[in-house]
Amino acid sequence: MATVAIPRRPRSARLAGSYNARYVIARIGQAVLAVVLVYVLIFIIVTVLPGNPVSARLRSPELNYTEKQINDLLAYYRLDRPVWAQLGYALERLILHGDWGLSLDAGRPVTSVIRGGIPSTLELAGASFVIAALLAFVISIGAFYLPAKLGGGVLRTFPSLFLSMPNFLIGLVIIDVFSFNLGWFKITTYDGLSALIYPAVTLAIPVSAPIAQIFISALDAARTEQYSTVAISKGIGRFTLLVRHLLPNAALPTLTITAIIVGDLLGGSMITEAVFGRPGLGTVIETAATDQDVPVLQAAVTLTAVLFLVINLIVDLIYPLLDPRLRRATAR
């Protein structure tokens, strides 16, 4: 799920001023536009691709709607109108009334279906993010400092290994080892901390891989830069070199990949929740997908994209604080 690409802030971020109100407003505006575009894109995917699921779904015998209920929902979504008109109505409902639509399953508002899942998923994603960040840090520093013979070489293969393990498989292995064999928790009744920790670790392992990968190569790169040589020739020790010179420089690309990885965190939480039977947004998405409940799916996925965009916006805005080259004193 995790993809590793060269992290690069968009040029707009690299040239911008750090405390420049116009820049901040422009970035926020871009993010809002992106949210709308995400919604439109998802709408296009579910409506334009062959096999328009909504009307087919409504007449499915298992839902057992009355003719009136079907007509009401058809009228609500204006399914008789052309696709672009439908999109217009959907956007109008969303933007003017904050209405995300009605679930096809119970006719309930989408928001009430989704709302229940959010806290639990945020909890999982948050815990998992912390674990992934710690894991990535420990692996990277170990890989960078330990000589090959003392495990540095092995640590360097961890990101690639983690990247090769499907989320659901990690979850099953963890259940097998810690619940079935060691008996540390019971899959049927577990609660409290252990109900959070095991899924969070499951999710954290593949997510930590790209972070560690970028962090290690950024540390290696910083070490070969001429400024490191100059710093060493002042006579400073390796710890000072790490803290003052390598970390501040390696932090920049690492931060970028960390923000990008949030998407994998949210995508992976769906699978993790399914494996551990943990209710949350992922379960909502899974149910909606299985039932082809398109409005719920659309809203839930848009929501994750919003979270992604918000976090990347925040990173964009703190980037100039970490890198003086991105600051433009007062000009502009």
Partner: peptide, 24 residues
């Protein structure tokens, strides 16, 4: 570039779920 940004904002796995739900 905007299109790429928007596509990147949707978690890849969820995007795949949506597409597969639409296609069957």
């Amino acid at each position: 570039g905007r299109l790429i940004d928007v596509l990147l904002a949707i978690p890849a796995f969820l995007l795949a779920v949506i597409v597969v739900v639409s296609l069957g």
